[in-house]
Write a protein that binds this DNA or RNA. Sequence first.
DNA 1: AATATTTTTTAGATCAATCTAAACTTTTAT
DNA 2: ATAAAAGTTTAGATTGATCTAAAAAATATT
Lengths: 221, 221
Amino acid sequence: MLTFTEENYIKAIYRLSEGGLKAVLTNEVAETMSTKAASVTDMIKRLSNKNLISYEKYYGAKITKLGKSQALTVIRKHRLWETFLVEKLHFTWDEVHDVAEQLEHIQSPLLIEKLDEFLGFPTADPHGHPIPDKDGKVHTPTLIPLSESALNKKSVVMSVRDGSPSFLQYLSKIGIYIGAMIVILDKTEFDSSMEVLIDNKTRIFISRDAAQNLLTTALMK
Amino acid sequence: MLTFTEENYIKAIYRLSEGGLKAVLTNEVAETMSTKAASVTDMIKRLSNKNLISYEKYYGAKITKLGKSQALTVIRKHRLWETFLVEKLHFTWDEVHDVAEQLEHIQSPLLIEKLDEFLGFPTADPHGHPIPDKDGKVHTPTLIPLSESALNKKSVVMSVRDGSPSFLQYLSKIGIYIGAMIVILDKTEFDSSMEVLIDNKTRIFISRDAAQNLLTTALMK
DNA sequence: AATATTTTTTAGATCAATCTAAACTTTTAT
DNA sequence: ATAAAAGTTTAGATTGATCTAAAAAATATT
């Protein structure tokens, strides 16, 4: 069984490896975990001994099958808890993350099964991120950054790429949420900002950065 | 802020001190925590430095006002989570303890407030133990062990003194639960066992030990 | 009261997680 | 291609939590 800290590292490494594809560098991990490179090296050795990653000095860490499944379990728990916090306890979108960071480490498979059932077996969390199932399977719809959507085409916000509190707060202030319907009314050439219509009601300008962070699916019909 | 382990110690010490009244000995703590006396001495020094207990060598630990309030917070969280597990996730009575032991250490006052509200501000957990309120106030009805109840008087099971899984399983097998109505039909002199009637339906014999562990309130007619 | 027993504390080790500072690789730039 | 810069690892320390073994204090026994 993994410690609290090991779980956090394997999760971070999984994220940085983009699902287990590429090797992850020490400093990348140090930065996302707000810790020092030396600490990361130590931990990487430990995770390697437990066969969660394979590790070559000065080259980086690659996540193993076992490591991936552990990471997905933690992510599953995190997203189920976030869903619980928002849907049942009425937390707002931007309040859930820190609490879910703690709750994700509770060890009880029974608890997670029952929570999943209680929530009605959701497939995505309140940020629109998919929730891996019990066996670690993730069903991901193809997501297009709003910045790449065509003019006048209806899209639904499914997810955000950068879930930082400040971005989430900004979104909620301007009325964008998971499930919101967005149409691009106009694109400005020189700075790639755009004017959009939210839920057929609100017209607003958003920056290129914001549009790149909003992941959408095209609305059929 | 207290560590996970410090919270567990202060809770155990509070319990053993019977609500902060009497001093608690090193070995008592070691036993209930399944640890060694030397570890307890170390921790007692740390808790003393944090002003959660006052400590005199070879005499024992007395819980302070601050310590008591911390302990009550942990207990409050534990009991709210147990209530959640049973009422919302349909855990059984005897499955909740280990999970609640973990959940009680989640740090988020907002979470506990919202959980409390979600549960409808319960005053007792599924074992019938009172849930301290936000300010640490506990309203405790006077509890009488069933063994001391009078013949033919109606009582309601409010709590159990010994919450061990084996006892809880036994109770649930014979149909006794928190809220059950019990009447003593007959007491046997020589071994203090008794025949009782549960919910006006089931007649059963229970031992003196069991009767002493069942805490009840007299039912006003 | 003197001795034996029990309880508690201290001393010294270990392990997880972290850090700083120094040493060592790899990469980049001149 | 060599020097400078950047990135990574090792060495050595620290803190929290735990342990065993030995010393010290309190309690019980004869």
